[in-house]
Amino acid sequence: MQQLPLLASSTQYAQQLRQGFRWLRFGPALEAEYRAYCSDNEYRRVLWFAAICLVLWAGYWLFDLWRIDAALLDARQRALLVPLRAVRAAGTAANLLVLGCALWRCPMRVLRATLTVMGVTFSCGAAFAVYVYKLLGVPHETTVLVVVMLGLFLPFAISLWAQLLVALLYLACVAALAWTAPLPEVAAQMWRLDVELALSALLFGLAAYWREYQRREQFLHRGDAHWLAMRDALTGLYNRRMFNHHIQQVMAQAQREGQPLALLLMDVDCFKSYNDSQGHLQGDAVLQQVAQVALACIGRPLDIAARVGGEEFAVLLYGSSADHARALGQSLVAGVRQRALPHGASTVAPVVTVSVGGAMLRPDDRAQTLYARADQMLYEAKNSGRDRCSWEEALQA
């Protein structure tokens, strides 16, 4: 809320759309907002994904017991069962770690790290299991490794670049197994499998890139539309609809928590005369200058500055004492005067000036009554000569 107003055609979302994002990366602030946007329901999706992976992984572990009869193996072959069981245990542990992080809603960076570890463990573990089956001469399905590659590129929490890194480690693992295979026929099969996995990684990677690109593009369009729906296109301040929504919320919170709330209404003096003498384009420029003054007066998370009419602005101050709010009202008057915007048609001063009316929230107030009392003070400021701030009598210094 504290940044300078943006024109509707220059929102950060529209600017990013024009700049493009072929590397699937936004500016720091927008990237953080996008990650927060993607985090909605992320824990639930990861939870389901990890649960399915655990069931499948446990199923293959049971198949090991059914398909491999240790009594029929020689000593060299039985030695392969120890690392196979260790790999199965490691995969299960990684899966349970992800489930725990999702259940207890660990920070997203921790969840992403555990997902990456699970991806590496599952992919390399599955490749090693197939390698052991080939050495043992046990029937197996190599297509499961392609399914594992597909799972690496599913849109769960980690970025596409992290997915590509895991996929490369997966391919390197298969290549290392092919390189060290003691049997030439197994080595040849593993090399062919590595090529198939590389082609599938290329296909799934392109699909994941396009999916991520479209998701980011949708985020930008949605953000731009949301910004335009909340903002006044000329000044970049919040519009009347957003102001009406916000005042209802903060009034309820202030009354519930016993916090003070101040409403300032500001109107540009003799603005019709300015438009008639200088033209509407110059009038628009004046409104933008006044909007910057209003925006500079807010500094708390629940404060808001809005354009609520043609030349009328509202500043809502949450948790602000009457003295502080009255001082800000005077700052609005002085701030616009200091801009020294010439106004030859004014009956008040040779420069553009504003009148401000203020009111504090009462226990029995509704939004309409608070607004009406601030509006009454605004008209009192105008009737008293303009270029000043008026408050309810009980709050006068």
Rank of each mutant, 00 (worst) to 15 (best):
L7C: 09
A8N: 11
S9N: 12
L30I: 05
E31N: 08
Y34T: 04
E42N: 06
R45Y: 11
W48A: 08
A50E: 03
A58T: 15
A58G: 11
G59Q: 03
W61E: 14
L65A: 14
D74S: 05
L80H: 10
A93R: 10
N95H: 08
L96H: 06
R105T: 08
P107V: 07
V117S: 09
M118L: 15
M118I: 00
F128G: 02
E141Q: 15
V146A: 15
A157G: 10
W161A: 14
V166S: 04
V174R: 06
A181F: 04
A188Y: 02
L199G: 02
L199Q: 13
S200R: 14
A201P: 03
L206T: 07
Q214D: 14
R215K: 09
Q218A: 13
H221P: 00
G223T: 05
W227V: 05
R231Y: 08
D232R: 13
F243T: 07
H245A: 13
I247M: 09
Q249I: 04
A252I: 00
R256D: 02
C270W: 14
Y274T: 02
S277Q: 14
Q289E: 14
Q292T: 11
L295G: 13
P301F: 09
E311K: 09
E312M: 07
Y318M: 08
A322W: 02
A325E: 00
R326Q: 10
Q330L: 12
R339M: 13
S346M: 02
T353Y: 06
A359F: 09
L370Q: 10
Y371M: 14
M377E: 15
A381H: 04
R386Q: 09
A394S: 11
L395C: 05
